[in-house]
């Protein structure tokens, strides 16, 4: 093997250190990229639970993080739209820390036609206080039928109730048909 070849190979591995540094600096405990299924959801949950146990996290915070993770992951399972090209069904799920709080970030492709609906839902929920959210939760629970994909239409409302925080969200264009929907929510330490 010549020196040049060794160098090229070494250079090509720089990204590992870069990713490691970024994860350290941004305190990203867990980053998952790919398709999100129920099996993946269970594995990610188990990993996050173990991480929180190891760091001696309080039970109440652990429960909140678990709760928000389930709703976020199952939202992606149920609502991610399959893009039939290089982005096919790929989603991202990240748990990070910031000054002791947990930050959960997700991203998944959605059909552009759904953007208005998602935006309206999230901006409505962001305007609500605890009392409004409780009322909306109860009325949705009582009156909504389960969707074909098995969603109760309660995920976002539940996350907002548990965290007491507002959603940050955005849509980046993938192509004519699809956008990448990104969502972030913070879970405070009590």
């Amino acid at each position: 093997m010549s020196d040049t070849e060794v160098n090229t190979e070494l250079e090509s591995l720089d990204f590992i250190y870069d990713v490691h540094q970024t994860m350290r600096n941004k305190e990203l405990n867990l980053v998952y990229e790919g398709q999100i299924t129920q099996e993946i959801t269970k594995s990610v949950l188990a990993m996050a639970e173990r991480n929180m146990d190891t760091s001696g996290e309080e039970t109440s915070v652990k429960k909140k993080v678990f709760n928000v993770m389930v709703e976020c992951l199952q939202n992606i399972c149920k609502h991610s739209d399959e893009v039939n090209d290089e982005h096919s069904a790929s989603a991202i799920f990240i748990i990070g820390r910031e000054k002791g709080s947990y930050i959960i970030s997700t991203g998944n492709p959605v059909l552009k036609g759904k953007i208005t609906d998602i935006e309206t839902k999230l901006s409505d929920i962001n305007k609500m206080d605890v009392g409004d959210l409780k009322t909306l939760y109860k009325s949705t629970l009582k009156n909504n039928k389960l969707s074909e994909k098995g969603g109760a239409g309660l995920g976002f409302i539940d996350i907002a109730r548990r965290t007491g925080n507002k959603f940050t969200y955005d849509f980046s264009e993938i192509n004519d048909q699809y956008s990448f929907f990104t969502l972030q929510v913070k879970i405070n330490k009590d």
Partner: peptide, 12 residues
């Protein structure tokens, strides 16, 4: 111990 929102509908 815990149930998700889809289960909350079925428990109802």
């Amino acid at each position: 111990d815990y149930f998700n929102t889809a289960s909350s509908k079925l428990l109802l």
